[in-house]
Design a protein around this nucleic acid. Structure first.
Lengths: 150, 150
DNA sequence: TCTGAAACATGCCAGGA
DNA sequence: TCCTGGCATGTTTCAGA
């Protein structure tokens, strides 16, 4: 991983629809050289996948919620059971097991408060072993990217 | 936006390296039909961008931190000033203005605790108007996707 | 590793149903 | 909005440095 690879990854994290020719121009390399570097990064698993990002405001998912969850008990069985269930919930985009006051932080996309209420009542609170929850609502998006600097 | 569009978006959110031919097969459509649907979704801004997702564990960014921040005061000037500065921080992937006990929730990718400490001391705490911060560390990734169900 | 060229597949645009 | 066909463009491979 040299500087060229880092530049290449920065570009690919921004936009994968550029042709290898365009990338080659920006990196001062030949088309094949760029091609092979990309293949290497894919082989090594550094590039994990190529995806399309949608505009959530155009598809009725403008309401972002962070939900902090605490379990009743912390046995391995309770944790894995909870995790297995939360993975299946479509509304949940991210779920991280964390240190601190709460056990998990979830990020959800829903249409509005009404839909979130429905989610809480019919899905979240029916999960086993949940102790307490604390919901935080997004009122503004300051920064939201999938690309990070190497 | 019909059912076919939703299926198409589900596929594109998972993988954009499939050829339109393959997508056409899965959707029981011709190549051109798929092509035109994709162009329409791009035109409407529903598809926002195409990006490569990296494996953070392979590039020294395995340490995920959530940082809850409270400002000293909530005047418009203080908020926009803080936001303008936080956008520039490379370590910060997400920053949401939220309701509740704290004003902002940040998600960061760094190498390890040492790098996070460095970030706190040299970057975060030098920002103006910060009242208090509360850091939560990821100890496990349960679910982490950019794709959501429509 | 890189370059450059050649073979192959795909993306993309007409024209018509 | 869909399909068929064809040209332009991109991707991928390979020999040689």
């Amino acid at each position: 991983m040299d500087t060229t690879d880092k530049k290449l990854l920065a570009l690919l994290q921004q936009d994968t629809k550029k042709t290898t020719k365009e990338l080659a121009g920006k990196l001062n390399l030949s088309v094949t050289a760029v091609y092979e570097r990309i293949k290497k990064l894919e082989r090594e698993g550094i590039i994990h996948k190529y995806v399309a990002l949608l505009n959530r405001n155009k598809v009725d998912k403008g309401f972002v919620v962070f939900c902090h969850i605490k379990l009743i008990q912390h046995s391995k069985e309770f944790l894995t059971n909870f995790e297995r269930q939360v993975i299946k919930l479509d509304e949940v985009l991210e779920c991280f097991h964390v240190s601190g006051d709460y056990d998990y932080i979830l990020k959800l996309f829903v249409k509005d408060m009404e839909e979130y209420r429905e989610f809480m009542v019919t899905k979240l609170t029916t999960l086993n072993h949940i102790g307490s929850t604390h919901s935080t609502f997004m009122i503004g998006e300051v920064k939201n990217t999938t690309a990070f600097t190497l």
